[in-house]
Simulated assay, not measured.
Amino acid sequence: MPSYAIRPEKSKALKFNLRTFENISEEILIIGQEPYANLIGPREFEIQLIRLYENILNSESYAKAKIIYYKPHRNGPRIDYDFLQTFFKDKKVEVIDSNDSVENIFFNEVRCKYLFTFDSSAVVNISAEADIALKNKIEITTMPILINDLSDLFSKLNFKILDDDL
């Protein structure tokens, strides 16, 4: 997506196939970013996780979902399952422990309508790969921990951003 690049004149569009699927589910996929614990410290990361989880709990999508899928980042510490279950008590919580990319898991397995993350670039890939009909059905919500180049891109892609400072 060169038009969204920081330096569009130096960017080229990558070729990829658009993807889609039928039967989108009303479930939630949380895309984890555990390496932030190494960057901002474990305690601050836990505070940010709690903020994200509380936003999910207060969202309209939470009332519709029966399952909360959590895909941890391939690097970094792991979030304890009991910690997740503490927040999402009335839902089935499934941790996806797979080496496959979150993009493939989204398109090929979970097919959730609602995606939540801090600022994973995976949601940009998902949005770029989704055909227009699917793109209009999914709802991507981000809550950036740090203001960075992705924050502006999330706005341009019409993602919901949970941060009053952006």
Results as ranks from 00 to 15, higher is better:
E129V: 03
F154T: 06
A133F: 12
K92H: 05
P72V: 03
T86K: 15
F83N: 07
T142M: 01
D100T: 12
N125W: 08
V102M: 09
L157F: 06
L162G: 01
P42L: 11
Q48W: 03
V93T: 11
D97I: 05
T117D: 02
R43V: 10
V110Q: 09
I68L: 00
K91C: 05
D82A: 12
I79P: 02
S120D: 08
I50K: 15
R78M: 08
E109I: 05
N136M: 07
M143V: 07
L52H: 02
Q48I: 04
D82I: 09
I56M: 05
F154P: 02
T86W: 12
I79F: 02
L146T: 08
C112P: 02
N148H: 09
D82V: 06
E60M: 12
K71S: 06
N108D: 14
L52I: 03
K64M: 06
D149L: 10
L57W: 00
D164S: 14
A128V: 00
N148F: 12
L57V: 10
I138F: 09
Y62N: 07
S121Y: 12
F118W: 08
C112E: 06
A37M: 11
L57I: 02
S151M: 04
M143I: 11
D164N: 10
D149V: 06
E103N: 12
I67N: 04
K71R: 12
P42A: 14
K92P: 00
N148E: 13
I126A: 08
S120V: 12
R43Y: 12
I140V: 09
L157D: 07
F45N: 01
R51C: 07
S101M: 15
K160Q: 13
L52P: 05
C112K: 04
E94C: 10
I96M: 10
I161P: 00
E129M: 14
K156D: 09
P42I: 13
N104E: 15
T141N: 13
T142V: 15
R74S: 14
N158Q: 11
N75S: 07
G41E: 13
Y53I: 04
D152E: 13
D152W: 06
R51M: 10
I140E: 06
A133Y: 07
E44V: 11
N55L: 09
E54L: 14
S127Y: 13
D163N: 15
